[in-house]
C-alpha cells in the first residue's frame, strides 16, 4: 500500500483533519467522551458543542428519549446552563485538542441569536458557530428555518455579531429546504448543515399517552438516513454548489459507507450523532473505512469526492 490517505478537508475555512463532526447534543461540551478508553477527540475533525441559549434552559419533562425502529426520538428541549456559563466553565478547558470545536447557538428571536453569537465571538477555543434555527423540541424552534425570511433575519443578525464562520442548521420540515438554504446563504451563511431531526411521535398503547414527556420528539438515526441524503443532494445542487458554500451533512450515519454516501451527495463534512450513543468508537471505524475507500479508489484528496453523485437522466 502507498502512503496513508489524507482525510483532511477544508470546510468554510476550517482545516478539518477528518471530515467527521460530532453533532450538537451528542457530545456535551467537548470532554465527556475522552473518559472512554480508546476514544480520542482527534477521532473527529470537529465537534459541535451542545446548544447554548442566552439564559439557562431547564429542558423538557422526562421521558426525553425513546427507541424507535433504527432510530431514536428525543425531546430534550435545549437544556443548557446558558452561554455565559458555557464560556466560563467549559470552553477554557478545550485547548490542546487537535480537534476543532464549533459552538451551537439557539434563541427565540434574531436579537437573541445575535447576542449569543457575540459572546462566542470573544470566547476561547471556538472555531465556528452553528446556528440552530431548527430544533423541533421547543416552541417556535423550527419556525426560523422553515420560513426563509425569518431564517435570513437570524443569519444576518448573527453575521453582524461575529466574525466566526457561521453554519446555518436547517430543518427537514421546511416547505422548501432549498429556499431556506438559499435565504441563509444570501444572508451571509458560510456553510449549511442539514438535516436536524424530523418531528415524530411514539405512543404507549397501554396508557394511550405519548412515550415522551414533550409528546412529540425529533427522530434521528439510520431511520432518517435516506430522507436526509435526498435533502443534502438537493440543497447541494440547488444552493451550495452554485454559491460555493459547503454542507455539513447529518442523518443517521453509522458506518463509513453512510459517510461516503453523504460526501458523494454533496456534503463536505459528515456529522455523527446518534451513532455516538450506540458506539463511542464509531468515528475511528468510519475514518478507517473512508481511508480504505480512498486507497481503493486512488483518491488523494477527499474534496474531489464531494458532490460526485452521477444523477441519471430521466425521460
Amino acid at each position: 500500500m502507498g502512503v496513508k490517505p489524507n482525510l483532511a478537508i477544508d470546510f468554510a475555512g476550517l482545516k478539518l483533519a477528518r471530515p467527521l463532526v460530532a453533532a450538537s447534543g451528542t457530545f456535551g461540551y467537548g470532554e465527556d467522551f475522552v473518559r472512554i478508553e480508546q476514544f480520542a477527540n482527534e477521532d473527529l475533525g470537529a465537534a459541535v458543542l451542545k446548544s447554548a441559549s442566552l439564559e439557562p434552559r431547564t429542558g423538557n419533562p422526562t421521558p426525553r428519549i425513546v427507541e424507535t425502529p433504527q432510530g431514536i426520538l428525543n425531546a430534550i428541549g435545549l437544556e443548557n446552563p446558558g452561554v455565559d456559563a458555557i464560556i466560563r466553565d467549559y470552553l477554557p478547558r478545550l485547548s490542546g485538542y487537535d480537534c476543532l470545536f464549533i459552538a451551537n447557538a439557539v434563541g427565540s428571536s434574531a436579537d437573541d441569536f445575535a447576542k449569543v453569537a457575540e459572546k462566542f465571538d470573544a470566547a476561547p477555543n471556538v472555531s465556528a458557530l452553528e446556528v440552530n434555527i431548527s430544533c423541533p423540541n421547543v416552541a417556535r424552534g423550527t419556525s426560523f428555518s422553515t420560513d426563509p425570511a425569518l431564517a435570513a433575519e437570524v443569519i444576518g443578525a448573527v453575521k453582524n455579531a461575529t466574525e466566526l464562520p457561521v453554519i446555518a442548521k436547517l430543518s427537514p420540515e421546511s416547505p422548501s429546504i432549498t429556499d431556506s438554504g438559499q435565504a441563509c446563504v444570501e444572508a451571509g451563511a458560510d456553510a449549511l448543515s442539514l438535516v436536524n431531526t424530523f418531528k415524530g411521535l411514539a405512543i404507549d398503547v397501554r396508557t394511550r399517552k405519548p412515550m415522551l414527556g414533550y409528546n412529540t420528539g425529533g427522530l434521528s438515526g439510520p431511520a432518517i438516513r435516506p430522507l436526509a441524503l435526498r435533502l443534502v443532494s438537493e440543497v447541494y445542487r440547488a444552493v451550495a454548489q452554485p454559491a460555493g458554500v459547503p454542507i455539513l451533512g447529518y442523518g443517521g450515519v453509522m458506518t463509513a459507507q453512510d459517510a461516503l454516501e453523504f460526501l458523494i451527495a454533496g456534503a463536505t463534512a459528515v456529522g455523527i450523532g446518534t451513532a455516538l450513543f450506540v458506539d463511542p468508537l464509531a468515528p475511528q471505524a468510519i475514518a478507517a473505512g473512508i481511508a480504505q475507500y480512498m486507497q481503493e479508489n486512488k483518491l488523494d484528496d477527499l474534496s474531489t469526492l464531494v458532490g460526485t453523485l452521477q444523477i441519471q437522466e430521466r425521460e
Binding site: F27, D32, R64, I65, N74, F277, P280
Partner: peptide
C-alpha cells in the same frame, strides 16, 4: 432509573 441513551452524560435524556 430513567430512560437512557449515551450513558456518559452528553444526551441529557435520563434526567431526575
Amino acid at each position: 432509573e430513567e430512560r437512557m441513551a449515551c450513558g456518559i452524560g452528553v444526551c441529557l435524556s435520563c434526567m431526575q
